[in-house]
Amino acid sequence: MKNAVRALRMRQNLAQGQLAEAMGVSRQTINSIENERYTPSLPLALALARYFGVTVEEMFYDQGS
């Protein structure tokens, strides 16, 4: 699943480790999400969306949308 996590993180000048700390997950988990190797759980997706002030649909989207 495609996502805008990296773009939103870069926009706020955040390191992966900082975002990971804020979300309570490992830096590798953030890296895997950004590289589309891991699809986060709904609670983590909601937490990420809230953190960046966007909707889940704006943050995560499939190929067609």
């Binding site: 309570g24 997950v25 490992s26 830096r27 590798q28 988990t29 891991y38 986060p40 759980s41 983590l44």
Partner: peptide, 18 residues
């Protein structure tokens, strides 16, 4: 390392649980 911390316990998050 993520693998060591995950196996040890203190590095477990939802992805490592999976």
């Amino acid at each position: 390392s993520e693998t060591i911390r995950g196996l040890r316990g203190d590095g477990r998050d939802e992805r490592f649980a999976q």
